[in-house]
Amino acid sequence: MSGDSYVLHGFAVPEGVEALHDLLEQVGSEHPEVDSSDLMLFETAVIEIANNVVEHGRPLGKVQWRFSLDVLPGQLEAVLSDSGEAYPGDIDYVMPDELAESGRGLPLARAILDEIDYTRAGDANHWHLVRRRAASS
């Protein structure tokens, strides 16, 4: 059984994050067989990574991205590639103190995903995100 692919192009701006939400909602409506909790958590992780690109991508407001998502029998797999400067941070952040008001995005994504990789290649940043499906067929 082969998977189904979705692709979205746009700018890494807050409105672009809304477009990602809409795409993931579309995936849910077109793939009712995907466990709703899996998709909900995957959406949460994708949005956190996208937020990170929006907040840290430079030049601000001019970064373009391409999001691709594959609904595969065993997993949900996405790649978010952006044209911004190299991501300056560390992806191994731990969950911050309870009263911190920021810094939870990447730790939250890491808690949800089975695989998360960042690479810099071809003048672009690539985030590879995988969550294995609970009831794979």
């Binding site: 939400h21 959406e43 949460t44 949005i47 937020n51 009263l99 911190a100 008001e101 995005g105």
Partner: peptide, 14 residues
């Protein structure tokens, strides 16, 4: 849906 920005707003408000 809530993301870490929303959580940050709630913690700030708290």
């Amino acid at each position: 849906f809530i993301d870490s920005s929303g959580l940050g707003a709630l913690i700030g408000g708290l």
